[in-house]
C-alpha cells in the first residue's frame, strides 16, 4: 500500500467557481462567510484566498448597510 501525508487544504470558493461574483447583492452566498451571530468568518475557517477575502469583507459590510444582511443576529426571532 502506498501512503502519503494528507493535507486538509481548503480551496477558495470564489477561485474555484469564477462565475460567482463577490457582490453585496448576492446575500445568500455571503451568508456562508458569516457565523450564526452574523460575524465575518476568518480566512482560516472558510479557506478563502486573501484577495477574495478582502472583497468578501467589503461586500458583507455593504450588504449590512442596505439591510440585506443583519449586523448581528436578532436574538428575539432566532
Amino acid at each position: 500500500m502506498r501512503f502519503k501525508m494528507q493535507y486538509k487544504r481548503k480551496i477558495c470558493k470564489f477561485c474555484e467557481n469564477k462565475e460567482v461574483p463577490v457582490d453585496y447583492k448576492n446575500s445568500s452566498t455571503l451568508k456562508r462567510f458569516l457565523t450564526e451571530e452574523g460575524k465575518i468568518l476568518p480566512r482560516r475557517i472558510t479557506g478563502t484566498c486573501a484577495s477574495h477575502q478582502r472583497q468578501v469583507v467589503t461586500a458583507i459590510k455593504r450588504a449590512r448597510n442596505i439591510a440585506l444582511i443583519a449586523y448581528s443576529a436578532d436574538v428575539k426571532n432566532v
Binding site: 500500500m1 502506498r2 501512503f3 502519503k4 501525508m5 494528507q6 486538509k8 481548503k10 472558510t46 479557506g47
Partner: peptide, 24 residues
C-alpha cells in the same frame, strides 16, 4: 503500524474533499 503520522491512500483525495470544512 504508524502511530504518529496520519496517513492515507492516494485515491482518498476525492472523498476527503467533501469534508474539508467539517473537521478542524
Amino acid at each position: 503500524a504508524d502511530v504518529d503520522l496520519v496517513e492515507i491512500e492516494d485515491e482518498d483525495e476525492s472523498v476527503a474533499e467533501n469534508d474539508d470544512d467539517t473537521e478542524e
